[in-house]
């Protein structure tokens, strides 16, 4: 393709692409390179005049079993949250894309996007108010039900999952919605004319055709959830120690940037590895 372009066309392409790539270079690549550099240091140059280069920060991950255990815990959290987002989000996207038309769809869409418009800290603290013992949820349930309900959801893994699902659900709904929306309604009509039930149409037509969108949404949820620290810290309390919170501690509390950086890059490597391993599945889904 590129060889076939005229010089003027090539110049135009370069002038259109370069702002974005310059920005990415400055905003992503440079800080990330700096972090990569830090991760090999014994101490930060501005604090420690005797700083040197070492692999010890990466070694710590393998020497101390807490780190792999926490990473595993975070990966499991990512799977749970992604799973719930798909279970809740995909049916929602399906109904929005294929059953609801006109104004009602716009209104429902607004409600899907609403979490994006509120500050994430406000969102999480609202959940804290709802979930805590004798909080909004428990009081409502006790008001409605004749028997006493003690949920005590606050500071549990469930609370963390609830908060994260709430934050990341829109990604799955939006990507799935776009994929489902692009499927021609005539395909569904054709399948029905051949005698297919709703379930068959979902299984053999809608799900395969919208899988790229669904998987894109799943990746958009899984990756940040594995590294999340705010929701685990506020909603998880004492149980809310995850891989992300440990990294945050290195930067904010312990002030051990090299270790924090090394742990971050291990996370990045693991996430990339997972995506690489699943990419054949993604590719097959697309054709």
């Amino acid at each position: 393709m590129a060889e076939a372009l005229l010089p003027t066309e090539r110049r135009r392409l370069v002038s259109l692409l370069s702002p974005a790539y310059l920005w990415l270079l400055v905003a992503v690549f440079l800080p990330l390179s700096a972090m990569l550099f830090f991760s090999f240091l014994t101490g930060l140059p501005q604090d420690d005049p005797d700083w040197g280069v070492t692999l010890a920060n990466y070694g710590k991950f393998f020497q101390n079993p807490t780190y792999p255990a926490l990473l595993w815990k975070s990966l499991k959290l990512g799977l749970w949250v992604t799973g719930f987002c798909i279970l809740i989000g995909y049916p929602c996207a399906l109904v929005l894309a294929k059953s609801i038309k006109g104004r009602a769809r716009e209104a429902l869409f607004l409600m899907v996007i609403l979490p994006f418009w509120s500050n994430s800290l406000v969102r999480i603290f609202s959940w804290a108010i709802v979930l805590r013992g004798n909080g909004v949820l428990e009081r409502t349930l006790n008001f409605l039900l004749p028997f006493d309900v003690r949920l005590n959801l606050m500071f549990t893994r469930e609370a963390v999952v609830i908060g994260l699902v709430h934050s990341y659900l829109p990604y799955v709904i939006l990507t799935s919605y776009l994929a489902l929306q692009a499927i021609d309604d005539d395909l569904i009509d054709a399948a029905r004319s051949m005698g297919a039930s709703k379930l068959t149409i979902l299984r053999r037509l809608l799900l395969p055709l919208s899988l790229p969108g669904l998987l894109a949404g799943a990746v958009l949820v899984f990756v940040p959830v594995v590294g999340s620290f705010m929701e685990p810290r506020i909603l998880g309390g004492r149980l809310g120690t995850y891989y992300g919170t440990v990294i945050e501690d290195q930067f904010v509390a312990v002030y051990n940037w090299p270790l924090g950086a090394a742990l971050s890059f291990i996370l990045l490597a693991v996430v990339l590895l997972i995506l690489a391993l699943t990419s054949p599945v993604l590719k097959r889904a697309r054709t």
């Binding site: 021609d184 005539d186 395909l187 009509d189 054709a190 399948a191 029905r192 004319s193 051949m194 005698g195 297919a196 039930s197 053999r204 037509l205 395969p208 055709l209």
Partner: peptide, 20 residues
């Protein structure tokens, strides 16, 4: 009777072949 139980064959303007 809904379409899926009528035992008809139908051809659509844009063919509506299943791309997958």
């Amino acid at each position: 009777v809904p379409v899926e139980k009528r035992d008809i064959g139908m051809m659509f303007q844009n063919y509506a072949l299943f791309p997958n």
